[in-house]
Amino acid sequence: MIVDRCKECGLCINVCPQKVLERGNEFNIYGYRYVSPKYIEKCVGCRLCEYICPDFAIYVEVDGL
C-alpha cells in the first residue's frame, strides 16, 4: 500500500476474492482511513485489487516472480 494515495473508496476490498483487505483505523495525511492487507497470508496474487484501484495506491508483489 502507498497509504497516502488511498482514498478509502473500498473498490479493492469489494473485488478481492480472498478477503485479504480491510479498511484500517488509521488516517493518512489526507484524512482517509486507508486500506490495509490485514490477511495477507490469504493473498493468491490475482492483482484484481491493483487493477481496480483508481489511485495507484495498491500493488501486488508476488515472491519469486
Binding site: 497516502d4 494515495r5 483508481p54 489511485d55 495506491a57
Partner: peptide
Amino acid sequence: IIHPLDRYLRTDRLPHIWCPGCGIGI
C-alpha cells in the same frame, strides 16, 4: 518509483484530483 506504473506517472503530482471511487483512475 514505488508502484509498478510510477515510471509513467508524474508521481510528484499524486494523489490525483479524482473523487474516491471514480472510475477514471481505473
